[in-house]
Design a protein around this nucleic acid. Structure first.
Lengths: 262, 262
DNA sequence: TCTCTGTTGATACAGTGTATCGTACGGCTA
DNA sequence: TAGCCGTACGATACACTGTATCAACAGAGA
């Protein structure tokens, strides 16, 4: 097999040559992010990115070794959008801010969730994020292992939550999303049609929206008699507010941390 | 755009025709899972699955509407491997068992993590899992919203953890994994080479293994002076046992739940 | 001005998911 | 038993992917 390659972030950026149109790593990544936002992740092909920039496909390989690297950079660009304010005043506030910001980015860029596995958060922005999260415990006398466990758990929760929140087939807004909207674009060309909710649900819950085959299916299954507990819970809770559910879950995790370092 | 399609699980299975070799939905899924286990997810193509079964590619479309559906079924098959024992004796034990089993499945099938986003857990086995998790709170007098939040949080944590645990570029075993091993296969043909750890790490931590470019990079960054907190924590903790880290994070979440339900 | 080095664009290749379509077969009806 | 008809199958084709290869060309240094 081939030589182990250094991570993208570890390789120098090429100069922008003005022929016939300047091209930079940042510009490539921005174009890719734009395509993914508009038309979904499957629409991000090297040919398409290159065309968007008025260049041939192979020119991209001067700035990026392979498509995988471009995806790495997209993920890190998303992390870069996370709003890291001043040093937090207390670990709870700090972690809450980071978690909320990360979740917001994942909603704004629905393709992010699908890239989290396979593209580790070790780019500069990912590291900056980790740094910031760890530093939330700066003043406290807490062992390092406890700090990493706390931060890891929060990040794992947020990542897992967005995976589930952005699942397709989940009951979404009743109207078919407008073509070209992020929700419609998420499945991408060739993806499964049908409403896919961008920011509207939680796990194993939600009402039935007739006309949505996924919701129809869930409703039928719930009524079917298998999964009795699920069915009961399913009807007992109404349409949950995803923001509130996220906050509630985060609260659980933070309470657990509080119990640990209390 | 097209008609909304019903989920795969909602469509009847076709009969197995004995021509020239029987083909069933279950057999197709099993073959796909086998390929993914052996050679990584990118190796799962309809042509390859069909060839494995001694059939032409188009025959698969009699049993599955599109590749996306096949992936749905693979995810549900993985959920089906989760060992659901007798009704748990207490919510904590029940959730712990489910979480551990889910994590074990994700390690056994490293392709699962990459599929979690985009393939919701609404297949029969996923629902069975949810049912089981919810029923862990059966005897207790806890409102439904609390139950769903508790279960959602645990599942989100586990899913997020496996995403991070199975990241490539993470420092792994020092030796290059043998060709054909699951770890080597994970990135798949055309994927980035280099060691990828199957079950060996946690978030934002881990020692430096010279020879591994990803680890080299991390070590250099840690030594670089940016990310001081990260660097300090990085050196302060040794090589963490991923199993212990997972358990610790799960403990945090469960403690948070305990605080919630008093 | 000539050479060299590094970038660009074109071409090519193997492989992908899947639409289309002619054919052949299984089971049902007359 | 003969005929039919719906369905499944296989082959072919298409648009598209990531990327290896290579000829041509630009700018820099001698």
């Amino acid at each position: 097999m081939g030589e182990p390659r250094r991570p993208v972030w570890d390789r120098p950026q090429r100069d922008a040559r003005p022929a016939p149109v300047p091209l930079t790593r940042g510009g490539i990544v921005a174009a890719a992010v734009g395509i993914a936002d508009r038309d979904g992740l499957p629409a991000v092909s090297l040919r398409r990115v290159a065309a968007e920039l008025g260049s041939g496909p192979m020119r991209i390989y001067r700035h990026v070794d392979a498509k995988h690297d471009l995806l790495d950079l997209m993920v890190d660009a998303a992390y870069g959008e996370i709003d890291i304010g001043p040093p937090p005043e207390g670990w709870r506030a700090g972690l809450t801010a980071i978690a909320a910001s990360l979740q917001a980015v994942a909603v704004r860029h629905p393709w992010l969730a699908g890239l989290l596995a396979g593209h580790p958060p070790y780019g500069p922005n990912g590291l900056r994020l980790t740094e910031h999260a760890l530093s939330a415990f700066a003043g406290l006398d807490v062992p390092a292992t406890t700090v990493t466990r706390a931060v890891s758990t929060v990040i794992a929760y947020v990542i897992g939550y967005v995976q589930l929140e952005l699942s397709p087939t989940a009951p979404g807004p009743p109207a078919e999303p407008a073509a070209g909207s992020p929700a419609a674009a998420r499945s991408g060309p060739g993806g499964r049609p049908g409403p896919a909710s961008g920011d509207s649900r939680s796990v194993g819950s939600g009402p039935q929206q007739p006309g949505n085959p996924g919701a129809d299916y869930l409703a039928r299954v719930a009524a079917g008699g298998a999964y009795p507990t699920l069915a009961r819970v399913f009807t007992e809770i109404g349409q949950p507010d995803p923001r509130a559910e996220f906050a509630a879950g985060l609260g659980i995790v933070l309470d657990g941390i509080a119990a640990l370092i209390g």
